[in-house]
């Protein structure tokens, strides 16, 4: 029996009978992937008009990007804000996730709900809200203000990722460590943390990416010398199609892909640890 006529599912439908599904799924997956990756070849085009496939290959848009002080400074800001957001959101997220996981207090459910509000509230509201509040305290256009706002966005993601890690961890290990003579803090750092480390790293990567890719809050509360890459990109998109954006986008796509593959790898490692 060849693959074609073998049953594809529990209802004994064959792979041949499923051909329409495979075709359809392939088309949809291409529709998902092509627009994500198309910027990569286009960024190497010599033309002002972003043809595909490019008739002449060149690195001029990368030169343009690297040679423009505005882009370089914005990139530095975005990286700086992303890293700081990661450094704020990851430990805070781990602490909160651990506390909510271990505590049996009645309030934990309400606190969890409070901590995930940044996922519920439309970002535009967070943007104008912080813009207004920062205006009152003079924090607009500051790195601190942006990091704080991005940390709020990253916290629920970090908490959810770390909580998932804790769920697949046997908490009795921590109890054993304590019975063997470790106090709570030692037990956490010596036993629990090393075992949820993949979740913690994933949370850190996602916190960075959340900040690095964030547009709307950046539009409002970042500016001047501290404007982010996304803010400049958004401005450039609204006005005209600057092929430099293709070069920057390519860099961002590569960054996302690397981080994604990293978390997939960590995920499979975490699964193998169980």
């Amino acid at each position: 029996m060849n693959w074609w006529s073998r049953p594809a599912s529990d209802t004994q439908i064959t792979h041949g009978g499923r051909l329409w599904l495979y075709t359809l799924a392939a088309i949809i997956m291409l529709l998902l992937v092509i627009p994500t990756l198309i910027v990569v070849p286009m960024s190497f085009s010599d033309s002002q008009y972003l043809e595909f496939p490019p008739s002449n290959w060149s690195l001029r848009w990368y030169e343009e990007y690297l040679g423009t002080a505005k882009w370089i400074r914005a990139t530095a800001t975005s990286v700086q804000v992303g890293l700081l957001t990661m450094l704020v959101a990851t430990p805070l997220g781990v602490m909160a996730a651990y506390a909510l996981f271990v505590s049996r207090h009645r309030a934990t459910k309400a606190i969890f709900l409070l901590l995930i509000t940044p996922m519920i509230v439309p970002v535009i509201l967070i943007a104008i809200g912080t813009f207004y509040a920062y205006g009152r305290v003079g924090m607009n256009n500051t790195i601190t203000g942006l990091v704080l706002a991005h940390s709020a966005l990253a916290l629920p993601i970090a908490i959810i990722v770390v909580t998932a890690g804790l769920r697949s961890y046997d908490l009795s290990q921590e109890q054993v460590a304590r019975s063997l003579g470790a106090n709570r803090i030692k037990a956490f750092f010596l036993i629990t943390l090393p075992q949820i480390r993949f979740s913690v790293i994933t949370a850190a990567l996602l916190s960075f990416l959340t900040s690095f890719d964030e547009v709307i809050i950046a539009i409002f509360v970042s500016g001047g010398a501290n404007a982010t890459l996304t803010k400049h990109m958004f401005a450039a998109l609204r006005d005209y199609i600057d092929p430099t954006i293709a070069a920057i986008s390519t860099i961002m796509v590569i960054l996302s892909s690397v981080l994604l593959l990293l978390t997939q790898f960590l995920g499979s490692k975490r699964g193998g640890n169980r």
């Binding site: 046997d170 109890q175 054993v176 460590a177 304590r178 003579g181 075992q195």
Partner: peptide
């Protein structure tokens, strides 16, 4: 007294061995 000051040896149903340590490091932990 907190658990870590009671000096009790404890064996759990799940064994709760530390998977990130070798056998010797597990036993050497206390």
């Amino acid at each position: 007294a907190p658990p870590h000051k009671r000096e009790v040896g404890m064996v759990f149903q799940s064994y709760a061995l530390f998977p990130h340590m070798s056998v010797a490091d597990n036993i050497g932990f206390p």
